[in-house]
Design a protein around this nucleic acid. Sequence first.
DNA 1: GACCAGGTGCCAG
DNA 2: CTGGCACATGGT
Length: 310
Amino acid sequence: MSRPPSVEEGVITCPEFDLRMTLESGQTFHWTPETTGEGTAYTGCIGKTPFRLRQEGNLLHFRGGAATMLHHYFALDHDLELIRSSCLGHRVSHDSALACRGLRIMRQPHWECLATFILSPMKQVAHIRQMSLALRSSFGTHLPGTPIPSFPEPASLAAATEADLRSCGLGFRAKSLHATAGLIAEGKFDPESLVSMSTPEARKALCALPGIGRKVANCILLFAYERLEAVPVDVWIARILGSFRSGKATPEQLESYGEKLLGPYAGYIQQYLFHQARTGKLLIPKKPDRKKSVKPPSPVRKKAREHVLA
DNA sequence: GACCAGGTGCCAG
DNA sequence: CTGGCACATGGT
């Protein structure tokens, strides 16, 4: 009896790579750690190919698909030293870049990345992970060799009902995901068509989809389409960039400010700042100030939309 | 139990 | 153009 076909096992060298930091930095959401006698191993899949990964120094041990697939997925060809040096002029950014050595911006499958970032608005990383895994379990393909199913195809999600998606904990995001999956399944939008477009064109195409605004579009461009200059402005990045300047600014103003301040690899540098802030290693001023200000005497604060119960 | 999360879309002024 | 608000859910 021959062994199961096409399951490779091996090792590749991965200088300047930190598997854990890369997988847990909020760009991908389904890789699952497990503690083994030899350290932490991550189980997941790239597209429909299951993988099990474990890093040991500059070696990446793997079981599953081909080594070339890993190399491409984790962008081991990116010149991190060059990327770090691109923000030498800005102290805080460069310090963050040094602290995040080995964190790489990945090349994720287009649809999978697009769909999971439709789930991201007003959700913490841990919650996006939950929703992603729930969708995989309910609508994905169960692959041999890993407990993590592949991400469901657009047609699978389009065939489901919006209520089915809601039961995966998506909340109001179910509508956007269902609609976008339908557009793709019907051939009205092709994620692959973005590859040959300029970044502004691709951004515009993404923003035309339901539930995708500038921030989510930039995440997709950065994490799936290798547009390393794209700067997603979320609450964290807004605070950070806001602390570098004075006065108020719209998210779009902060985005172009960030593009200029952080240079040609602004998206990469943004990820370093994001990671440092989110893990409490980058001190940022408290929020501008929530609504703790003077409460107007007017008793009517919210729209009276209470349902009369009983 | 309030507060917040890798926001977006819509509507009023 | 800008400000305000609804939209769902779960962890701290």
